[in-house]
């Protein structure tokens, strides 16, 4: 249990995210079948496989390098809505983190918030639109609050994980207003948002890695 996340830790985060995506590919696609086009699982799996290959091939020396690789790889291998959104997220995280080799809780929270801002700039989602925003934004609010209250990295990411999960669950009753699910109108209610569900996995992975 450490107070910073090192470059190694970032890679372990990505690895753990990838493992969760792989495990949940069918589930994510099933969620996307109900209110979308049945590809979110395979999109994310394809993207994270490409990311881990790229990251393995050319290990990065700094956080900005690493996350630039992650973001560009997602942008160029995923497509769909999630490619530009997750891609932009990581590109912005890297830009905000800068040429460092580790981040403490506050720096990490700030970098992740820059990522969220990138997602919003790209996709224009607002709270309650039933998108990944609805897991991402509360996760970062919780992390900020924990950091402000002096929580450890582990505690802050655990708070983010829990808030992401709550945010994901809260998408279920919502009527979608962004993305493909919005075409369904009222019929989109009663289903979890696939992107919010994959985002919750991202924070599960982060919390796991900081706790290790």
């Amino acid at each position: 249990m450490s107070t910073t996340l090192t470059l190694d830790g970032f890679v372990r985060w990505l690895e753990s995210f990838r493992a969760r995506i792989d495990e949940q590919t069918a589930y994510l696609t099933e969620l996307d079948s109900a209110i979308g086009d049945a590809d979110h699982g395979s999109n994310m799996a394809r993207g994270m496989a490409a990311v881990m290959t790229k990251v393995g091939e050319s290990p990065a020396a700094t956080a900005d390098e690493l996350f630039k690789t992650v973001g560009m790889t997602l942008v160029t291998s995923v497509g769909g809505a999630s490619g530009p959104l997750y891609g932009t997220f990581f590109l912005r995280v890297g830009m905000a983190a800068g040429p460092v080799s580790e981040c403490d809780a506050a720096a990490l929270a700030a970098a992740l918030r820059a990522g969220l801002e990138g997602v919003v700039a790209r996709g224009k989602a607002e709270a309650g639109d039933k998108t990944m925003f609805d897991a991402l934004s509360p996760a970062l609010d919780a992390m900020d609050a924990a950091v402000a209250a002096g929580a450890s990295l582990e505690e802050a990411t655990a708070a983010a994980r829990d808030a992401a999960a709550t945010g994901r669950d809260a998408t279920e009753p919502l009527v979608a207003r962004k993305g493909r699910a919005s075409y369904l109108g009222e019929r989109s209610a009663g289903h979890l948002d696939p992107g919010a569900t994959s985002t919750a996995l991202l924070f599960e992975a982060l919390a796991e890695v900081t706790a290790a």
Binding site: A38, D39, N43, R46, T76, V78, G80, G83
Partner: peptide, 11 residues
């Protein structure tokens, strides 16, 4: 050409 039902990528 993107993957099935998945828009192609910017590159």
């Amino acid at each position: 050409a993107g993957e099935v039902f998945t828009s192609p990528t910017p590159d």
